[in-house]
Design a protein around this nucleic acid. Structure first.
Length: 864
RNA sequence: GGGCGAUUAGCUCAAUUGGUAGAGCGUCUCCCUUACAAGGAGAGGGUUUGGGGUUCGAGUCCCUAAUCGCCCACCA
């Protein structure tokens, strides 16, 4: 009945086979007709542009742990997988591919381009989800979804039309963040600001019909041609008399008014600012307040427009070139008063890092404020809670200052906006389908990709049909697991949309984890070349090692995780330990079927009590999302209690049933974190099983009958005694081959049963219980454990003279160091001029040496 | 300008409501004792960033200073 296993755990061989075993057994499939309570998670759909990275590995591992734990703990667990079409991001990637052939999407035309992008997407969809399989993801592939599939697209249309009809989606001309490279508007949160060194140019505008001029400061002189006014602060005495007058623009000679507006900061620059409503969000507001008509001077490619306001020589010129040229022209006209260096934040496109051009254009928006109300309430009243809680504040602050969401993108890959225009009259109809394809043309814009992601928890469950079995069973979902970087992009929108369209919060807990960073704490990115590829780690260390390491590193506070390749040795070593301990058990069990826990001795009761405590602690920690703590508890228990002590004790006295039972239970508890190795071992155990796989076995629970607190205490004392005796051996340099004798002064009944343990583990030949007065030999060392004293006669065991001279040598060597250091310290020049830290450390070292020397002296005293 | 986080052993990080500061790696000593050298038995290493305060008791709570990082807003 005994089994032989390889001495080193072969992760690669085992993991692939075990994953297939689960797939074949359909253990990941959730049953929407089950009577069990539901537990559901929808995956944050990875973009079809990418491959698996460490962030996914962490995110996926944590989700899988939660799903596996709940599956074992009696829930009907669903982890729904899928991918995101990632509109702009994917379009950019495919365009880059085309560029290699010297083509643009316009060369292909819209239809062909979308076709090609579909090909790309289909290919990458399975790539990334197959990589998740390598992680051991127990998601239900039969429910796999894609944000651009029919169901999700229907949901998008339904939501768009409904919001439009409620007046919560509108179309209008506003300043948006325009990416000239992508050729599309992007939303505020897709714009990332970077501090850049720039200049502040001060330009003089002569007054009309009188002497004098007004000087304005600008960082963007090329926008001068779009000026429609000069603004000053109404209470600025410097300019009091100029308000209402006109000035003449340099270069073009156009006349513009000088106006007063609260927006102007009197203390910045010259206190006068040029107003360019078509190319600056603040100026746009000012323009609206003063009824000034915007003038477009930069086009959607970031080039100067060929219009009458722009001098001919600048027509079509790229904006930075135009800036240089404009400055030259201003210099020539001698209206450039001053140039100073000026750092300012410049908006960049999140997708391609191109500098954003604020541009007045016609776009679609979602009116967020009315929708945000309920989304704020849901978090405030606890329908949704964030773990850790501090992210709630972050979320609420953003929601309470929410701005309208620009949802239209001038791209081809995405959900085309369901608005149709009459070919002759231009009349607009917003509807799920084209009312009359012969006479109506659909809006050419697509939706922001996050619009469809925002519907993910319910678009995947059958919405708009809320009567599907999945929707009824698994919506709302239970937990959402994600990084803090997409709280605004995604979490906030799901909450908003979920509440609006289903009346329910789409999940009750948002579990936020940290981000993965490199050794130096920097964000991992391909361009920096500092990425660690999870697939490579899996091949080198194994999936369970990767999972264990990441889990143990994830803390309750959701701190970012700094990684290096070597850190995964931690998990690999633990996996190997699990493997080898199991190997020992399997090799030493003769009657695996006999699982009756009887004839329990001290050690048995101790390990069962420990196991029991662990089960309780784990349940508690799972409840609080302290998953890293679960990992640590299991590591400690398995390694320090089960392996270091219980297995060693079992070599002296064995209770097969307990040995197997504890292994069985520990494997189950460990399974969510290290699924493959635990399943593999469990399958090899010939014990009685209530289920055919550990993945669907019952998760261990606290059991009152396994609480043996008296025995636990006593066993801890035995352990303490063994440790103390080992310690004593080490300090007297007693070789392992030399057995010692021990005299015990204490209660015999308390220790009698443990004598075999003491003998074997502390390498003791003879143990005797004695009375105090029997001891008069000075060459004894003693250790005290509670009320009991363990006396070890050293005479004859160690060569006292040899030991004394060994100690003396140690002492002398330290004395040499001490004298040299003390000499340095007694030199006043050293103390004065040496670095403070060096003086301090020198002093500390002297004290340290003195302490050690005192200890040696005491020891030698005793030996004499 | 507003907010948040971090500062603990040489390194990377833990430490549930305030209750003896821990782990992994690294270092030092000994050991291939037939589950495991990816291992075993020991050791050393900390005024928890500085300064105040509350408390019987503070890494933990309050105030304050410094350094690093992140988010938001503004930036003509």
């Amino acid at each position: 009945m005994t089994k032989e296993l390889a001495t080193v755990y072969n992760a690669r061989e085992v993991e692939e086979r075990i994953y297939k075993f689960w797939e074949d057994g359909e253990f990941f499939k959730a049953d929407n007709k089950s009577k069990k309570p539901p537990y559901s998670i929808v995956i944050p759909p990875p973009n079809v542009t990418g491959v698996l990275h460490m962030g996914h590995a962490l995110d996926g591992t944590l989700q899988d742990i939660l799903v596996r734990y709940h599956r074992m703990a009696g829930y009907e667990a669903l982890w729904l997988p899928g991918t995101d079409h990632a509109g702009l991001a994917t379009q950019n990637v495919v365009e880059r591919e085309l560029a290699k052939e010297g083509l643009t999407r316009h060369d292909l035309g819209r239809e062909k381009f979308i076709e090609k992008t579909w090909e790309w997407a289909n290919e990458h969809k399975s790539t990334i989800l197959n990589q998740f399989k390598k992680l051991g993801a127990s998601f239900d592939r039969s429910r796999e979804r894609f944000t651009f599939d029919k169901g999700c697209s229907d949901a998008v249309k339904e939501v768009f039309v409904t919001l439009y009809n409620k007046g919560l989606i509108y179309k209008g001309a506003y300043i948006v963040n325009w990416c000239p490279r992508c050729g599309s508007a992007i939303s505020d949160i897709e714009t990332e600001y970077e501090q850049e060194a720039g200049h502040l140019w001060e330009i003089s505008y002569p007054l009309k019909d009188e002497a004098g001029a007004i000087v304005v400061a600008t960082t963007r002189p090329e926008t001068i041609f779009g000026d429609v006014a000069i603004a000053v602060h109404p209470s600025d005495y410097k300019y009091k008399d100029l308000v209402g007058k006109k000035c003449v623009m340099p270069l073009t000679g156009r006349e513009i008014p000088i106006i007063a507006d609260e927006y102007v900061d009197k203390t910045f620059g010259t206190g006068a600012v040029k107003i360019t409503p078509a190319h600056d969000p603040n100026d746009f507001e000012v323009g609206k307040r003063h009824n000034l008509k915007p003038i477009w001077v930069i086009d959607d490619k970031g080039c100067m427009k060929a219009c009458s306001e722009v001098p001919q020589n600048l027509h079509g010129l790229e904006r930075y070139e135009a800036r240089k040229e404009t400055v030259r022209m201003l210099e020539k006209q001698q209206v450039l008063v001053k140039i100073s260096a000026h750092d300012h934040a410049v908006g960049k496109c999140q997708r391609c890092n191109t500098t954003i051009e604020p541009l007045l254009s016609e776009q679609w928006f979602v009116k967020m404020e009315p929708l945000a109300k309920e989304a704020i309430a849901a978090v405030k009243d606890g329908r949704i809670k964030f773990v850790p809680k501090r992210w709630e504040k972050n979320y609420l602050m953003w929601m309470e200052n929410i701005r309208d969401w620009c949802i239209s993108r001038q791209i081809w890959w995405g959900h085309q906006i369901p608005a149709y225009y009459h070919n002759q009259t231009g009349e607009m109809v917003v509807a799920k389908e084209n009312p009359d394809p012969a006479n109506y043309t659909q809006d050419s814009d697509c939706l922001d990709t996050w619009f469809s992601s925002g519907l993910w928890p319910f678009s995947t469950m059958g919405f708009p049909n809320s009567e599907t079995e999945d929707f009824k069973k698994f919506y709302p979902t239970t937990t959402l697991v994600t990084g803090f970087d997409i709280i605004f992009f995604w979490v906030a929108r799901m909450i908003t949309m979920g509440l609006e369209f289903t009346g329910k919060a789409p999940f009750s807990t948002v579990y936020i984890h940290g981000l993965i960073r490199d050794e130096k704490g920097q964000k991992m990115s391909k361009s920096k070349g500092n990425t660690i590829d999870p697939v490579e780690i899996i091949e080198k260390y194994g999936t369970d090692a990767l999972r264990y390491t990441l889990t143990s590193l994830s803390t309750y506070g959701g701190q970012d995780i700094k990684l290096s390749d070597e850190r995964f040795e931690y998990g690999r070593n633990f996996a190997n330990k699990v493997w080898n301990a199991s190997r020992f058990v399997l090799m030493n069990i003769e009657n695996p079927e006999d699982n009756e826990l009887k004839n329990l001795n001290l050690a048995d009761k101790w390990i069962l009590t420990r196991l029991n405590n662990v089960a309780r602690e784990i349940e508690e920690n799972f409840k609080n999302f302290r998953i890293g703590e679960v990992a640590h508890i299991l590591y400690d228990f398995f390694w320090n209690d089960y392996c270091d002590w219980y297995i060693e004790l079992s070599k002296i006295q064995k209770n097969e049933a307990v040995l197997t039972y504890v292994l069985d239970m520990t494997l189950r508890m460990l399974h969510p974190i290290m699924p493959h190795i635990t399943e593999e071992i469990w399958q090899m155990m010939d014990i009685k099983k209530e289920k055919k796989a550990i993945i669907i076995s019952d998760y261990p629970k606290y059991k009152k009958e396994f609480e043996f607190s008296g025995e636990e205490t006593q066993m801890n004392s035995v352990i303490e005694a063994i440790r103390a005796l080992r310690n004593l051996r080490a300090s007297f340099s007693i070789p392992a081959t030399t057995l010692i004798n021990v005299n015990i002064i204490g209660e015999k009944a308390l220790w009698e049963d443990s004598i075999p343990y003491l003998k074997r583990l502390a390498k003791v030949e003879n143990i005797e219980f004695v009375k105090d007065e029997n001891l008069d030999d000075k060459q004894n060392a003693s250790v005290v454990v509670g009320e009991t004293k363990f006396i070890v006669p050293l005479k004859g065991i160690i060569n006292i003279e040899e030991e004394i001279s060994r100690q003396q040598k140690k002492f002398d060597k330290l004395e040499g160091e001490r004298k040299s250091l003390a000499g340095r310290m007694s030199n006043p020049r050293f103390v004065e001029s040496a670095p403070e830290a060096l003086v301090a450390s020198t002093k500390a070292r002297i004290e340290e040496i003195e302490t050690i020397q005192a200890g040696i002296k005491e020891l030698m005293e005793k030996l004499r």
